[in-house]
Structure formats: structure tokens, C-alpha cells
């Protein structure tokens, strides 16, 4: 019974580590800022949650497990805000503009705002 618990926790942790490895590969290989942010979203959503769940099953004590799970929930809250802030700032401050995209509805929206202000 106890070894089954260990097997489950090791499985969760190794799956999380695999997704973290994929994130590094994606960060190195993807062409521009926004697609790299997509690769970075994998690590906190999937591998952060899987590793915290695996650790919570591994220690298997009420307060420690609750603490680890709370840290995982905090990952889930803080990750989209940081990702969204980086992407929106790099677009609207003209730091990294995706000029080669064929489909770009957001530039029309920004241009409409500038016309309304002037």
C-alpha cells in the first residue's frame, strides 16, 4: 500500500520534470517572443501542479500536504497575470512587434484607439 503511494508520487514528479524539459526545448527553439511565452506557460500550469501534487502525495501528512497544495494554487493564480502582463506590455510598448504575422487583429484595435484620442 505504501509503495503504491510512492509509485504514484514518483510518476507525477517525473511527468512534471518531463514537461519542464519540454519547456526548455521550446524556449530555445520557438521563433519569437509570443510563442516562447506559450512554451513558458506549459511549465507553470502542468509541471508546477504535477510536481506539487507529487510532493504532497510523497510527504502524506495533513499540514505539509496542505501547504504544498496551497503553493501550487498560488502558482495557478500568479502565472496568467505575469504572462499576460509581459505579452501585453511587449506588444503595446512596441518592444517586440510580430511583423511577419498574417493574422493580427490587435494592431487594428490599437490603431482605432489612437485615432479616437487625436
Amino acid at each position: 500500500m505504501m509503495s503504491l503511494r510512492l509509485v504514484i508520487s514518483y510518476f507525477l514528479m517525473f511527468t512534471g520534470a518531463f514537461f519542464a524539459l519540454v519547456t526548455v526545448l521550446g524556449l530555445l527553439r520557438f521563433p519569437d517572443v509570443y510563442t516562447r511565452i506559450h512554451a513558458g506557460a506549459v511549465v507553470l500550469t502542468i509541471s508546477g501542479v504535477l510536481i506539487t501534487l507529487g510532493t504532497a502525495i510523497y510527504v502524506w501528512e495533513f499540514f505539509l500536504s496542505a501547504k504544498v497544495v496551497l503553493i501550487g494554487i498560488f502558482f495557478l493564480f500568479s502565472n496568467p497575470m505575469a504572462t499576460h502582463a509581459i505579452a501585453r506590455a511587449s506588444y503595446s510598448r512596441h518592444i517586440a512587434l510580430p511583423e511577419e504575422y498574417e493574422i493580427d487583429a490587435y494592431s487594428e484595435y490599437l490603431r482605432r484607439d489612437e485615432n479616437a484620442n487625436t
Binding site: 512554451a39 500550469t45 496568467p80 499576460h84 501585453r88 506588444y91 490587435y106 484595435y109
Partner: peptide, 15 residues
């Protein structure tokens, strides 16, 4: 909903 879209890998809410 915006946060869930951002959290899913592959889609990212800008505005």
C-alpha cells in the same frame, strides 16, 4: 475566463 485562456498552453489573452 481570461486567466483560464492564458493558463491553457497554446492560447494567450492580450486584451
Amino acid at each position: 475566463l481570461a486567466n483560464l485562456i492564458t493558463l491553457t498552453p497554446g492560447t494567450l489573452t492580450l486584451d
